[in-house]
């Protein structure tokens, strides 16, 4: 028998089966209620509420802000004073807003060059069998679950002139290092960065530890067998495999830096003399203190566009390759 005829014979045999299973599938569909009106009804019941909430409170406010942003408006009375792009022009010619952007960028860069290498080093170092590992993980993570408001107040108390931190420096014989941590315009931003690091670094370390847990131990052994030194193994094997976790870390850190608000708002109110103003504190200040809602809407739109562009570009170029599925996805 030739192959062809065998194939024909088989397909001849299976034809009734196909018809059968098609009928069964139709029946199953009917049972499941896949008739189109019923499916539509179920879908609107399932998706409707979420969609209303999402459109009403996430999409619409931003869309309306775009509309408000072309008006000069103090928030009361009718919108009638169309001024076009003047609000946007004003933002980019206000030196305080430019400084706010600079402050956000400084925080972002400091996170990248200080927090990230430090976090990776710490994660690599404590990723070993040691006593009290669970406790360490717990403690490291704890500041992250506190509200930024509590963190801000706690550190404000410690950083008071002549307070706890100053006393520590004096006791350590480094009294000359004492500064007006929150009062000196040259220092305040870095103080806030330190406080932010205290709150958020632990989360990043736990994230990186989880990423490390996902890398099979055999890889390290194999590299060692091939004569690689521990340092080489770490650099050539472990770090590349940690890549996806690091890229997520960077993404979260950058978005976090862009929206920094609670700490400077509570600790310094953006001061002194605007030295710790961020885009978010600037924007809220224009809104609730000087009632310039049209202008504040424009600043919101600018901040939104920054975030959106960053997210899109970063996902397009840095995160996309991670979606192919990699070892670290199995991190536990």
């Amino acid at each position: 028998m030739s192959t062809q005829s065998r194939a024909t014979a088989r397909s001849g045999e299976t034809l009734p089966d196909v018809a059968d299973s098609a009928r069964a599938a139709r029946q199953l569909d009917r049972l499941k209620g896949r008739s189109s009106w019923r499916q539509r009804l179920e879908l609107s019941f399932l998706l409707g509420p979420a969609l209303i909430l999402f459109v009403g409170f996430v999409i619409l406010p931003i869309a309306v802000a775009v509309y408000y942003s072309i008006y000069k408006w103090n928030g009361f009375g009718p919108l009638k004073d169309v001024i076009g792009f003047a609000n946007y022009k004003r933002a980019f010619s206000d030196s305080l807003f430019i400084r706010a952007i600079e402050h956000n960028v400084i925080i972002a860069v400091l996170s990248l060059v200080i927090q990230l290498p430090l976090s990776i080093a710490i994660a690599l170092l404590i990723n070993r069998k040691m006593r009290g590992r669970g406790f360490l993980r717990l403690v490291v993570f704890a500041p992250y679950v506190l509200s930024a408001a509590v963190t801000a107040v706690t550190w404000s108390l410690m950083l008071q002139p002549g307070g706890f931190v100053d006393q520590l420096f004096k006791n350590a014989g480094a009294g000359s290092w004492v500064h007006a941590w929150l009062g000196d315009t040259h220092i305040v931003l870095y103080t806030i960065f330190v406080v932010a690091s205290w709150q958020y670094m632990g989360f990043g370390i736990v994230l990186l530890l989880a990423g490390l847990q996902g890398i099979p131990g055999e890889l390290r052994e194999a590299a060692a067998l091939d004569g690689a030194t521990p340092w080489q193994t770490t650099r050539m094997v472990i770090l590349p495999l940690l890549g996806p976790t690091i890229r997520i870390w960077i993404f979260l850190s950058m978005i976090g830096s862009l929206q920094l608000f609670d700490l400077p708002w509570i600790m310094t109110n953006g001061g002194p003399a605007g030295a710790s103003t961020t885009m978010a504190t600037y924007l809220i200040d224009k809104g609730i203190h000087s009632y310039e809602y049209g202008y504040a809407s424009a600043v919101s739109v600018i901040l939104f566009v920054f975030c959106f562009i960053f997210a899109l570009v970063y996902q397009r170029f840095a995160l996309r390759r991670d979606t192919q599925g990699s070892l670290t996805r199995m991190a536990g």
Partner: peptide, 24 residues
């Protein structure tokens, strides 16, 4: 498409939308 629409919310944090939300 609908799923992608829902993921827009990941692109910006609530802080960014706080003032527009307040007005809403």
């Amino acid at each position: 498409g609908l799923y992608a629409f829902f993921t827009i919310g990941l692109m910006f944090p609530l802080t960014v939308a706080a003032l527009p939300l307040y007005l809403q």
